[in-house]
Amino acid sequence: MSILEIKNVSKRFGGLKALDDVNISVKENTVHAIIGPNGAGKSTLLNVLVGKLIPDEGSVEFDGNSLIGRKPHEINQMGVSRVFQTPEIFGDMTVYENILIPLFAKRDGAFRLHCIEHVEDEKDIVEKAKKMLQDVNMYEKLGMRAASLSRGDKRRLEMAMCLSQEPRLLLLDEPTAGMARADTNNTIDLLREIRETRDITLAIIEHDMHVVFSLAEHVTVMARGTPLVDDKPENIKGHPKVQEAYLGGHKEG
């Protein structure tokens, strides 16, 4: 069963067609990678999915509900979380508070004026936050300012923030961009573990083939705003259209 259904989506910026009749179907509880060279429209597509951009045409449905015209926070409340290329966290707050915020958002919705209770009196939330920090091995860093964490820890914290909301779909925008090989492998392990231990669908936008082929169960290759190939990773590797897109032509024979 597909959890995310992208149908005939087009988006134009002036004369540039960033997305041209995109059709992608993401199956529930899989890892789906969207790859492609620079300018293929991957980031535009992601921004359409999270409500940052409204497409000119087409429909996007998450679990049967349209996402078009909804604001980012509404889409999140439906169960879609997003991890950014450079970790977006609450830098001048503590690691602990960083985890509290998504938990409150999940329980109380987009806005609630509960300004009388003390944070520590919200036992259920506090417990969940501490458990989540233990799960991602960051409990000792609970009191640290989030901005002072290492890059790897920031990434981990951002993932923990997203996962604490128990999203059904997690969108990842180049989660290993700019990382050293060791860090990349750690991230791959982390993502694999997330996928294996939870009821979650991962949609990854990625440059790094190593990451894609280590994780993805399904791959969509995009070029110039359109999906070229949509197949299992083993069938993608030698696909002539993919080589053409990446290398500007494929070798005969």
């Binding site: 915020i101 509960h114 944070v119 909301q165």
Partner: peptide, 22 residues
């Protein structure tokens, strides 16, 4: 209060706030 935490979140990172459902 949790409300106070949210207000500090506004100061810290509104982008992350929106993508956290707030």
């Amino acid at each position: 209060s949790p409300f106070g935490v949210m207000l500090r979140a506004v100061k810290s990172n509104q982008q992350r706030m929106r993508y956290t459902g707030l």
